[in-house]
Design a protein around this nucleic acid. Structure first.
Length: 562
RNA sequence: GCGCCUAUAGCUCAGUUGGAUAGAGCGUUCGCCUCCGGAGCGAAAGGCCGGAAGUUCGAGUCUUCUUAGGCGCGCCA
């Protein structure tokens, strides 16, 4: 693992702690217990490459003005053997550090040595982590909201892998319950309609074209043989016919979107293998359930929820909540995941507290369960908001979306903002100005670097030894800024993993591309003297590697040319 | 009514988890290819960070209140 940036921050802490101790021994500062202070990247590069507020936060400890503390610390600072060549006091008492050229050069070498592993960390080493995402109802195709959830969940899973977790991707198939009944009723109506157009369509039915299509496929095979059968038998046959086709359709669509799961987990399996019954029994044994009006209730109010919830309906069928508890019991207790992240639409936020409460009551610490609430995507068409709903069939499907814009553009776009933010998606604009997507800006940087390297090789310049090239004379501001930014990748990956937010990676990739484009317009590679050309070529390679690693996490292609 | 999310330039959004003079892209105006890819770079203009108090050396960031918008509060999932 190579993480020069974190090491240099730690170096600042050590340097300052040592200086404080030295100052105390000389009587320049009072003796004191170690205290916490910040080490940050200043917004203005004139303020150094790393900056510490140690003197500011310790004003109370020492009962001295920050500027005097800073002076005492700076007076005892020893930079030998550190990544820094210079240190100075500025402003109200900041202590600013400047990287040495040798350190910056070593970053380039380090990245090239790490190669495709550069950026990977050991934050989650040894931890089994499940990310459950999309989990769209199999009653129809995926829509725009699922497209965001898919890009988000898949990239989050990749980020967690990069951070060292052992990651498992899972799709929860709601293949039982009320919406499946509804699915059956809708299919039935569409089927009967073929033979008798006056058959009414149920009010709560799914109006989408896909239902009509499935009914037609069914009729093509079985003709009218089910028209005169019992409704229950007819619905059952229709569901058994259509559901596997729908699930396969979801798999195919997701595969086109570059998403493949480790497991498609069927809700119905929880009933078949008795997990639901078992978990209901556990809750009952703990005295957390009671009967009222013919239904079995969970005392959710005692578990941190707002009100009690029904587990088993008066008609004997378990609710979604009941199977969800069983499902999470399965994830944690039966399959032994250390942590689980669920990507849910924000409209499900009311269920977070009660599910966590239920897990606590089953002896699973709720801190092991994280729910990432994703705001739904608002669709704009012709400048107006379009109300999307699977029931009315007005949703834009994932495959329609991917007919209009590239997978790269879609995956990048949906990961540009934090999950909790509201997102507008203007289909007209997206299809018209596909190239406005910043993904092309990032890919262009990659193609440009490839082009430079191709051009060098075409001139018979041997680039095979770049990994060990001395890069300490990369001192132009555009060069040092780029190198420093490259060094941030491992800590950015950790931040993204901890905050469960892959948008940190897209933002990083955009910023990295910007710094490269600036470097490109200021610094030439080809035609420079060897002592400049080779280090710059090495920097290009390091940038290329860093970009590829970011795009790899996002599963966005890194083109040789555009 | 209660709960969650959001509010930063004309528009779309960043803001390194409390740091120094709040930044990009699009749009507007003006520059930059004899030279590794102009899908790029540079400059100008554009701001009461929704509003009001508070916490402290220091607040776009934290607390409380408030305003506006979105979403939820079912024996649906």
């Amino acid at each position: 693992m190579f993480d020069a940036f974190t090491q240099s921050k730690d170096a600042v802490r050590n340097i300052i702690n040592n200086a404080i101790q030295a100052a105390a021994e000389k009587g320049q500062l009072a003796q004191c217990e170690p205290f916490d202070f910040g080490v940050e990247i200043p917004a203005d590069s004139n303020h150094g490459d790393l900056s510490s507020n140690a003197a500011l936060v310790s004003a109370k400890v020492f009962r001295t003005a920050p500027a005097r503390i800073a002076a005492a610390i700076a007076d005892n600072i020893d930079l030998s053997g550190t990544p820094f060549s210079k240190c100075e006091i500025a402003g109200p008492g900041f202590i600013n550090f400047f990287y040495s050229n040798e350190y910056l050069g070593s970053v380039v070498n380090g990245v090239l040595r790490e190669g495709e592993n550069y950026g990977h960390t050991e934050l989650g080493k040894g931890k089994k982590m499940m990310v459950e995402f999309v989990s769209a109802n199999p009653t129809g195709p995926m829509h725009l909201g699922n497209a965001r959830g898919g890009a988000l969940g898949d990239c989050l899973a990749s980020v967690l892998s990069a951070a060292g977790y052992d990651v498992w991707r899972e799709f929860y198939v709601n293949d039982t319950g009320n919406q499946i009944n509804n699915f059956g009723l809708s299919l039935e109506a569409r089927y009967l309609e073929i033979f008798d157009p006056s058959v009414p369509f149920p009010d709560e039915g799914y109006h989408g074209e896909d239902i009509i299509e499935r009914a037609r496929q069914f009729a093509d095979i079985y003709g009218d043989t089910y028209v005169n059968k019992e409704p229950e038998e007819r619905q059952k046959a229709l569901i058994e016919f259509a559901l596997p086709k729908n699930i396969q359709g979801l798999k195919d669509d997701l595969l086109k979107y570059r998403i493949s799961y480790d497991e498609w987990f069927l809700e119905s399996s929880l009933y078949k293998d008795g997990t639901t019954d078992k978990v209901m029994g556990l809750l009952k044994d703990k005295g957390l359930t009671y009967e009222k009006e013919g239904a079995i209730w969970l005392k959710t109010t005692e578990l941190g929820g707002e009100k009690d919830d029904v587990l088993i309906r008066a008609n004997g069928f378990p609710t979604y909540f009941a199977s969800d508890i069983a499902y999470h019991y399965n994830k944690f207790v039966l399959r032994g995941f250390d942590r689980v992240i669920n990507i849910w639409g924000a409209d499900h936020h009311g269920h977070v507290a009660r599910l966590k409460g239920a897990m606590e009551s089953l002896g699973v610490s709720s801190s092991r369960l994280d729910i990432v609430l994703m705001q739904l995507v608002e669709l704009l068409q012709g400048g107006e908001k379009v109300r999307m709903s699977k029931r009315t069939g007005k949703a834009i499907t994932l495959s329609t979306l991917l007919d209009e814009i590239s997978v790269d553009a879609a995956r990048f776009f949906f990961n540009m903002r934090e999950p909790a933010t509201h997102m507008e998606f203007d289909l007209d604009l997206a299809t018209k100005n596909d190239s406005d997507n910043p993904v092309y800006y990032v890919q262009y940087a990659h193609a440009r670097i490839r082009s430079i390297l191709r051009s060098l090789e075409a001139s018979d310049i041997d680039l095979s030894g770049l990994t060990d090239t001395d890069c300490s004379n990369l001192t132009e501001p555009e060069e040092t800024s780029l190198i420093q930014f490259i060094s941030y990748l491992p800590s950015r990956i950790n931040t993204a993993a901890e905050s469960m937010d892959p948008s940190a990676i897209t933002k990083y990739a955009i910023d990295l591309a910007t710094l490269f484009h600036k470097f490109y317009s200021k610094c030439r590679v080809k035609g420079e003297p060897d002592e400049t050309m080779f280090p710059r070529a090495a920097l290009c390679m390091a940038t290329l590697q860093t970009l590829e690693n970011c795009l790899g996490i996002l599963k966005v292609t890194a083109p040789e040319s555009m």
